[in-house]
Structure formats: C-alpha cells, structure tokens
C-alpha cells in the first residue's frame, strides 16, 4: 500500500514538475527463485526494489554510490552493487540476496563459518560480505589469500579489521582454520 501510494504521488509530482510523465515499466524480477512482477520507474535502483517493493531488507544500503559493497547481491552469479544497478536492467536475470543463503531454516556452511570465527560484529557489512564470499567460493574452491583479498576488496568492514572474515573463508574452504567460537 505504502509503496503504491508513494509511487503515485511521486508520479504526480514528477508530472507537475516535468510537464510529461516518465514511463514506468512493468518488469518481472526473479529474486531468490520467486518471480515478482512490479511497476518501476527507470531511475529506481535494484536495492530500492529489493528493500522497498519486495520487502527483503537483509540487503543493506550504506553509501548508495557504489563504494562500500554493503548492498552486494548476486546477479546471475556475479556479485554486483545493487545501489548502482538499475532495477530495469535486471529482468531475465537471477537475483540472489542474503535471505537465500540459509535453506529450510538452516544456516549454510559459510554463514556458520562467519559465526564460528567472530567475523560478524555490527553486522551491517555482513550480508554484502557474505554475497561477495559466496561468489568467490563459487569461483575458487580453495581461494588463496590473494584471491580472497581481490574477491572481498570491494566490501568495507569497520569492525573486524578483516582478520576474522578471512579466517571464515579459509574455514569454509577447508584450509586448516578451525572454529574459535562455540
């Protein structure tokens, strides 16, 4: 309701301002395996649609300008920044968000490893970090330290100093790092 209301008002305001109504587009987005048919203005970013329209708030917006990685989602397997990706560009692609990682109420091994290593503090970078790490591990079964750094360089974390995050990736890829928390 709120979304529709606000969108209508926005269109009205846009009309008043521009003298012509910009075309909204009707698109179908496949998010975590569910198809969402939505009407969206071209200017809407993927993160706005995921969070506001679809209501999946696990994906976090921080800089909204493509500089911190908090909003990372997988787009047909690629980690992308949903804050600088237009929603209309994502039709026909598979979008995966952090909500898709745990299946049947059970955390996956990467999520468990983050908790085992203390790789989560405030948690705000965590969803984006997990999605980047998921893409990294899909590409490299046992990533080297250099590959981990290149894979996660686009995700800022202010809490952990990154050590525990690297350890979590090493743990889940079975490279000799054991859980430190129980």
């Amino acid at each position: 309701m709120n979304h529709l209301h606000s969108q209508a008002a926005e269109d009205a305001a846009g009309q008043a301002h521009n003298g012509s109504k910009r075309r909204s587009r009707c698109i179908a987005l496949n998010i975590n395996g569910e198809l969402h048919e939505i009407t969206v203005q071209p200017r809407k970013m993927l993160i706005e649609v995921i969070r506001e329209t679809v209501g999946l708030t696990g994906t976090k917006g921080s800089c909204l300008s493509g500089t911190c990685g908090a909003c990372t989602v997988l787009l047909s397997g690629r980690p992308v920044l949903s804050c600088i990706t237009l929603a209309v560009e994502c039709e026909g692609k598979e979008i995966r968000t952090v909500e898709d990682l745990a299946q049947g109420g059970k955390l996956n091994a990467l999520q468990e490893a983050f908790l085992d290593q203390g790789a989560v503090q405030c948690g705000f970078c965590t969803p984006g970090m997990l999605m980047s790490a998921t893409a990294l591990l899909e590409r490299h079964e046992k990533p080297s330290l250099a590959q981990i750094k290149k894979g996660l360089e686009g995700n800022l974390c202010r809490c952990t100093g990154y050590n525990a995050i690297v350890d979590a990736v090493l743990q889940v890829s079975d490279q000799g790092v054991l859980p430190v928390m129980k």
Partner: peptide
Amino acid sequence: AHAVGGNQIRQS
C-alpha cells in the same frame, strides 16, 4: 582490468 575498482565494479 584486474586493477580497476573492487570486484563488484569489475563484474559490472
């Protein structure tokens, strides 16, 4: 190409 931005930037 490897030196550009962060990984997510290079993916897009």
